[in-house]
Every structure is written in structure tokens, then in C-alpha cells.
Amino acid sequence: MCQELFSKTVTLAMTGASGAQYGLRLLQCLLAADCRVWLLLSDAARVVIDTETDCCLPEGGDAEVEAFLAARYGAREGQLRLFGKRDWFSPVASGTGAPASMVICPASGGTLSAIACGASNNLIERAADVALKERRQLVLVPREAPYSEIHLENMLKLTRMGATVLPASPGFYQRPQSVEDLVDFVVARLLDQLGVAQALLPRWGEAAAPVRQQ
């Protein structure tokens, strides 16, 4: 299906850090915004999804998981594509085919390290390497605490390369009432980075909550 039928194409990768809810909610919002999504899941990400959420991925191959997620989030035909970790002929593996934007959400410390040193041992790392070498948008969402010197050095190195590091650190000025509200705070910031319209979170100065009396 042609790109013209969708608003834009985004590569979304999920790795084994805690915070699968962020990645799945971002996937849902991108599809609802009529974006085409190239999805990459590490083996550890699948374990975390099964552990942290009620999204029970099928045990079959990539085609079964792709069909499951497409049905779960109402994707149109051709809107969602899941690529395996060794699919070197996928569009995201080359600068001639990769989209302008890539998000890794959540991004594990190991993934940050591999990208920072150009390892490219799997498709997620290769796709990120492509984004960096082509000077395209790469947004990384680490979910770790506390950060070690290694984590901080890798994030600084990647920032200097042109990547955006957006930690999964929700704010509270919107008066969250649920875990979902906290997830949406981070996802809203990601959608803003991608230039995708969102109504998950009012912008600063819009519909501000009253100041609580101390």
C-alpha cells in the first residue's frame, strides 16, 4: 500500500526495558492518527509485554503477532508491519527505505550502548544506525533508575549524534488520576516530537489546573 494513503511512516521499536505500556500506547495512537508503523520487537520486549500488560502476544511467528496487534488496535490494511530481528531486507535496514522518524520506546540500557557504539547486531540497532547516519529523527525513551555513568555517557554521546533522549518521566501538573494518565503524558510528548497531532495532554498554559492551596 502506498505511503500517500497514510499521513506519515514511523519506525517504532520496543526493547526489554520496563515500560511496555508506553510503547503499546504509542503504537495505538500512531495508528489512530493514520500513521503507517514499521514495528520492531526484541525478544526481551515480548517477555516484558506479557509480564507487564494484558496484551498476550500469540506464540506464533511475526505474521501472527502482526495480525494480533493490527486487530487489537484497529489498523487498516497495510498500516502495520512487524519485521523480525534478522530481516535485513526490511525498509528500515537501509537509508533508501527507512522513514524519516524512529522511536525506541522503551529503550533498554543495552540498546543505548549498542547504538552508541554502532554495533548493529539486530534490526533495531541497524535501524537506529541508519537513522543516525542519514541524519534522520531518532527518539530514545530510556526507562531506568538510577542512571549509571555508562548510561549517562551513552545518552550524551547519542544526543551529540543528533538523537533525542526523552526519558519516561511523566509530569504531574496535569493532575493525573490513573496510571493511564501517566503513560499518556509521556506518549503525548513523543507524539509532539514526531509532529503528530494529539489531544492526550493540554499544552502548557491551556486548560491549566487550579493551584492547590497549601
Results as ranks from 00 to 15, higher is better:
M1Y: 11
C2Y: 12
Q3Y: 03
L5N: 02
S7I: 10
T11F: 03
M14G: 10
A17S: 12
S18F: 04
Y22P: 11
Y22A: 00
G23D: 06
L27D: 02
C29T: 03
L30S: 12
D34F: 06
D34N: 15
D34H: 15
R36D: 00
R36Q: 15
V37E: 00
W38I: 00
W38H: 14
L39M: 09
L39W: 00
D43G: 10
A45P: 08
R46K: 15
V47N: 13
I49T: 11
I49H: 05
T51L: 13
D54M: 09
C55Q: 13
C56R: 15
E59C: 12
D62N: 11
E64G: 07
E64K: 06
V65L: 03
A67M: 12
L69V: 04
A70M: 04
A71E: 14
A71H: 10
Y73F: 15
G74T: 12
G74W: 11
A75T: 09
R76T: 03
L82C: 10
F83S: 05
F83R: 04
R86K: 13
P91H: 10
A93T: 07
A93Q: 02
G95R: 05
P99F: 03
P106R: 09
G109N: 09
G109L: 01
L112P: 01
I115E: 00
C117Q: 15
N121Q: 15
N121S: 14
N121G: 15
N122F: 11
R126S: 00
A128D: 10
R135F: 01
L140R: 09
V141W: 05
P142F: 03
E144F: 10
A145T: 14
P146F: 08
S148W: 08
I150N: 04
I150D: 06
I150G: 08
M155G: 03
T159C: 08
T159V: 08
T159M: 08
R160W: 01
R160Y: 03
R160S: 09
G162H: 05
T164A: 11
V165E: 06
L166N: 03
P167N: 06
P170C: 13
P170I: 12
Y173Q: 10
Y173C: 02
Q177L: 14
Q177A: 14
S178V: 14
E180F: 10
E180C: 07
V183M: 11
F185H: 14
V186F: 02
V187A: 01
V187I: 07
A188I: 01
Q193I: 04
G195E: 03
G195F: 11
A197I: 04
A197F: 05
Q198K: 08
A199C: 06
A199Q: 14
L201E: 00
P202D: 08
P202A: 05
G205E: 06
A207V: 06
A208Q: 05
A209S: 12
A209K: 15
P210G: 06
V211Y: 00
R212I: 13
